[in-house]
C-alpha cells in the first residue's frame, strides 16, 4: 500500500467528526475547547493535503494562517474558562446560561 490522498482525507474527516461529537455530547468546558481544537486541526490537515495534491503552496499558506487563528482562539477561550471558573467555581458549560439571563435594561 502506498500513501494516497484518501488516507489523509479520511483522517481529517474523522477528526472533524470526533470533534463535533465532543462538542455535542460533553459538558466539561475544557473538553469542548479541546474538541474545537481537534476540529480545527482536522481542517488544517485537509488543507495541507489539498496543497500537496494540487500542488499549490496557497493551501499551505492558508493552513499556516489557520495555525495563527488556532493560537488566538486558544488564548480567548482559556481566558473565558478561567474567568468563569473564578466566578462560579465550575467548568460546566451550563454555568454560561447566565449570559442568556441577564436583564438588559
Amino acid at each position: 500500500m502506498t500513501l494516497s490522498p484518501e488516507n489523509f482525507f479520511a483522517l481529517g474527516v474523522l477528526m472533524l467528526c470526533l470533534g463535533a461529537l465532543g462538542v455535542v455530547a460533553r459538558r466539561n468546558l475544557f473538553v469542548l475547547y479541546l474538541s474545537i481544537e481537534v476540529m480545527l486541526n482536522g481542517v488544517n490537515l485537509i488543507l495541507a493535503t489539498f496543497a500537496r495534491v494540487r500542488p499549490d503552496m496557497g493551501g499551505s499558506v492558508i493552513a499556516l494562517l489557520m495555525i495563527g487563528v488556532i493560537a488566538a482562539e486558544a488564548a480567548l477561550f482559556l481566558a473565558m474558562i478561567v474567568q468563569l471558573y473564578r466566578r462560579r467555581r465550575s467548568v460546566d458549560s451550563d454555568a454560561y446560561d447566565r449570559l442568556a439571563q441577564r436583564n438588559w435594561s
Binding site: L3, F8, L45, A48, A51, S60, A63, I70, A71
Partner: peptide
C-alpha cells in the same frame, strides 16, 4: 508528523512551535 509526511516542512515546524 502528518504535515511532515505531506512534504510540508514549514507547516511541520510551525505546528511543533506554535501548536
Amino acid at each position: 508528523g502528518l504535515f511532515g509526511l505531506l512534504d510540508q516542512s514549514f507547516l511541520f515546524l510551525a505546528q511543533v512551535m506554535v501548536g
